[in-house]
Design a protein around this nucleic acid. Structure first.
Lengths: 221, 221
DNA sequence: CGGGGGCCTTGACCCCGATCAAGGCGCGGG
DNA sequence: CCCGCGCCTTGATCGGGGTCAAGGCCCCCG
């Protein structure tokens, strides 16, 4: 993306802080903006009429929120932690996309990545055991923390990170109950795959062991 | 899509028949073509190292197979029934996409629809009961058959269609076992929500009842 | 016609994860 | 300081769906 584009984007942008738990987009009302996640985590959820809930996507730092060419999105977006986003009025943004086809391709690429992630998650939801689900979730966060990782731990196969979700959210992400998530976490803890300092801070001494517990045999580095 | 585009597409196209059970794309080898489904059903599957399998997408008549701007796709595509597809060499197709931005937008739109479908399925996999899963699957096919439906049944709230998948495939799509799928089908049959002539031909006397059994209360028509 | 192999159904039993219930921990406010 | 409330953990029990096993149906082939 060249300078001109960045400047034009900046001109129509509007920064915004949102505190944990607030709803950003509801599946009931149309969306008139497009946004970029600056910091924090946003959860996309779907809910059955009787209240059962499933998290169908997690958004982190450089992700997009909202959808091009459609005002109605079929899910609710809620701040999982305190969040900073950068919003663009939909109309202005679409005009810009029209001018710079490269931008559209970027969005396209990003959507393809989201589709891949969704399908990976379908495999997890449909076929993995509770322990594998929890381990997979932690493994995903661990890899993310390696990339984002400002702090390069001395030990190479290890990682440490903070959980951006409550137990309840983790359960909704993995298609489990709160209790099962808790039990599986202590299970992974007692088998020394992970260590918990507080119940939000996770230490992974050996990523390969975690990948193994996640049922994906030395994941694709 | 205007005439010129259609003609250019036709020039580089290559029609192909594939019989049920054959693998079209493997997740191990790169893909050098893009395709359009003409008839039949294609299943996209993911498999865990130990063999557990999940269908992460079903492709029908006007859908696309393959992916722009990436040779590696992370799943296997297999013909669920006998299938006809129309393939395009990747390079030529991408050149064409470059020339006609409208085409790219169409692909984008289609990918967004696939993402929505994947996320709906995540809710199903994570939170629905076995009966709701089977009912949801049938409901999806019933709605599809209404759109595609050449045969307009006299009764409005009803539908009839053929299952494009074996029990085993249905199980892999719903994150269940073969036996559970079978049991839930007989359950829906004995409660008169559906009727089976052969074990592949389904009659739905009342779509709303099916939608209700699917846990989605008079689905969005 | 008879045999064999897919595909599907049905029954019996079991186990993983849900449910129900109790209590611990940490934190903010009176 | 204590109380109350979220959030989390742990235990006891239950049940939906998995597993194992047997058999039915249909079609192809000898």
């Amino acid at each position: 993306m060249d300078d001109v584009q960045v400047k034009k984007l900046a001109q129509i942008a509007h920064r915004k802080k949102i505190s944990a738990g607030q709803t950003i987009i509801s599946d009931e009302e149309p969306v008139d903006f497009f946004a970029n996640v600056i910091s924090g985590a946003i959860k996309l959820t779907k809910t059955l009429p009787d209240g059962r809930q499933q998290i169908v996507g997690l958004l982190f730092a450089p992700d997009f929120l909202g959808r091009a060419y459609s005002k109605n999105n079929p899910y609710t977006a809620e701040a999982a932690t305190d969040v900073e986003i950068c919003t663009f009025p939909n109309a202005a943004f679409e005009r810009l996309v029209g001018e710079y086809p490269g931008l559209q391709q970027r969005l396209f690429q990003h959507t393809l990545d989201e589709l891949d992630a969704a399908r990976d998650w379908m495999l997890l939801l449909g076929r993995k055991t509770a322990e594998e689900k929890v381990a997979s979730f932690l493994y995903m966060l661990a890899r993310r923390s390696m990339l984002t990782g400002c702090v390069h731990k001395a030990t190479p196969g290890a990682a440490a990170f903070e959980l951006p979700l409550t137990r309840s959210d983790i359960a909704d992400y993995l298609g489990l109950t709160i209790e099962t998530v808790s039990r599986q976490l202590t299970r992974l803890k007692t088998s020394n795959v992970i260590r918990l300092s507080t119940n939000r801070l996770i230490m992974v001494p050996d990523l390969d062991r975690l990948a193994h517990a996640a049922g994906q045999e030395h994941g694709r580095h």
